[in-house]
């Protein structure tokens, strides 16, 4: 289900503003933003795309991971101002419009790869981005742990997430290196 991007609301901030034009989930967005607005807050507060979660705000937890020009990156370590001209993909763009889950999401569901689900959007975006890289995938336990090493989960103990990555690779016909 694709969530609609919120229309702009009048800004009451006294901060210096900068004009940004970027693409979010395939849609062109042009806004005036505070120069200190983080991309994570831009997506959540300005665009209403609250599927991108915010955990630590210093790059450790990985909850806010989105695709920045196709590559996983921390939206809390990127300024909205820096994202001028970028193409951003968030979790809202992953499932089909009719709600059909993407194979990575389906794999998380099948393998019980989430409990509270707070870390899941960041996990899914990171995995998606890595799957789209040309670089061969290492689907050994160590290789998957390395892939997930930048995403913290405080519920599951990771075993089911590792299983979900392997299952997602299977569903997507990704063969290990």
């Amino acid at each position: 289900m694709t969530r609609m991007i919120k229309p702009a609301i009048a800004d009451r901030s006294a901060d210096a503003q900068v004009e940004v034009a970027l693409t979010v989930n395939g849609e062109a967005v042009r806004r005036s933003v505070s120069v200190r607005l983080l991309l994570s807050d831009f997506l959540r507060h300005e665009l209403g795309l609250t599927g991108t979660h915010v955990g630590c705000e210093h790059g450790v937890c990985g909850c806010c991971t989105v695709l920045i020009d196709g590559k996983p990156g921390r939206s809390c370590l990127t300024l909205a101002a820096q994202a001028n001209g970028y193409s951003i993909r968030t979790i809202e763009s992953v499932a089909a419009a009719d709600g059909t889950l993407h194979p990575v999401q389906q794999a998380f569901k099948e393998c019980h790869g989430l409990q509270c689900g707070y870390c899941t959007p960041g996990m899914v975006m990171n995995i998606l981005g890595r799957f789209e890289e040309k670089e061969p995938l290492d689907l050994s336990d160590d290789g998957i742990r390395e892939l997930l090493s930048g995403n913290l989960c405080r519920c599951t103990g990771y075993l089911n997430i590792i299983a979900a990555v392997r299952r997602a690779a299977e569903l997507l016909g990704k063969t290990p290196a």
């Binding site: 790059g59 990985g62 991971t65 920045i68 590559k71 996983p72 990156g73 921390r74 370590l77 990127t78 990171n126 981005g129 890595r130 892939l147 090493s149 930048g150």
Partner: peptide
């Protein structure tokens, strides 16, 4: 060096 999403940026 850190993790892939950090190395990407």
């Amino acid at each position: 060096v850190a993790h892939i999403p950090i190395r990407n940026r």
